[in-house]
Amino acid sequence: MAAMSPSERRLQKELMSLMKEPPPGVTVDGDQASQNLTLWTVHMEGVPGTLYEGEKFVLQFKFTNKYPFDSPEVTFIGNNIPIHPHVYSNGHICLSILTDDWSPALSVQSVCLSIVSMLSSCKEKKRPPDNSFYVKTCNKNPKKTKWWYHDDSV
């Protein structure tokens, strides 16, 4: 077997710990991820007692070979994209740690927890105000978007 690159080594370690001790409501598709370490599918359940209780979401993580120096590309995929002021209807997420505030000390697990908490603290289910314009004009890769972070409260 060829020697693993540093990014593969790190992804392998993250995958193992995420499968062993997943945060509540979060499950990673381990088979798919171990076949292709650069593309992960993570299933997420709406936290009981929040607006998203009982809903199921699917997140996709794409990694480059520069990971963790390069942030992962994270989007919601599938039929159920959460209705949230920071989530566009094409699945793109406006979250600073996914671009400007990314740090290699963050991980798939910490990104998942941030998204869970972003959803859980939502007070009103609605799309971002610029949703229709953004979805029409944006790049396929959310990391190419110059985000204007709306607020820090949600």
Binding site: A3, P6, R9, K13
Partner: peptide, 10 residues
Amino acid sequence: CGICLCSDLP
């Protein structure tokens, strides 16, 4: 290491 999550580097 807090970045590569490994102890020894290859």
